[in-house]
Amino acid sequence: MTLFRLAGDLSHVLAILLLLYKIWTTKSAAGISGKTQLMFCMVYVTRYLDLFTSFISVYNSTMKVLFISASVATVYLIYFKFKATYDGNHDTFRMEFVIVPALILALIWNYAFTFFEISWAFSIFLEAVAILPQLFMVTKTGEAENITSHYLFALGSYRALYILNWIDRYYFEGHWDPIAVTAGIVQTVLYGDFFYLYFTRVIKGRKLQVLP
C-alpha cells in the first residue's frame, strides 16, 4: 500500500460521502447524473465479485463493502427517495454507448478469458468513462453546485493519485497493471477540462460555470 494509493482511496471515500451528504442534506438529486451513479454501481459489483473468494486485507474488504453499499444507496436516493428532484431531462447521455464498448474491449483485452477476469476488465474500462454522463450534464445545465464540484474534484483526484501509486509501484516493485493504468489515464484525462474550470473558478470562490 503506497501513500498515493491510500490518499487515492481516501479521496474516493470523500467523494462518495460528499455526494451522499449533498443529496441527503439538500433532499435533492438536482444536477446529479443518475446514469453515472448507475454505472458506478455496475463498476463496483463487477469488480468486487472476489469479495467472498479472495481475502486481501480487512482494509480491502471493508472498502469494497463500503463502495458497493454507498453506490447502491446513492442510486436508491436518486431514483427512488428523491426521484421527484432527479433532472432526467438533462441526464440524456446514452449509457449503452460506453457500456457496450467496455464489454467488447473486456472480451478482447483481459488477463484471462475467465468470467471473473473479463468482469474485472469490464469494470476497469467502464469506470474510466462512467463519469461522462455527469460531465455532460454539467455542460448541459451550464453550471454545477459547489458541493457537486468538490465531489467531482475528489472523484477525479482519486484515480490521478492512483497513477502516482502505479508509477511508485513500477519504480519500487518493477511491475505494473497495463489494463488499470491505461484506463486510469483515460479516466483522469476526461476530468482535464473540469479540473481546469475547478482551479480557475471554484477555488476562487466563484460558481463553476461552463462558459457558453
Binding site: H12, D50, T53, S54, N60, Y111, F115, F116, W120, D177
Partner: peptide, 10 residues
Amino acid sequence: LGLAHIHDEL
C-alpha cells in the same frame, strides 16, 4: 471464477 490475477488494488 478463475483467480488468474489477484487484484490487490481497489
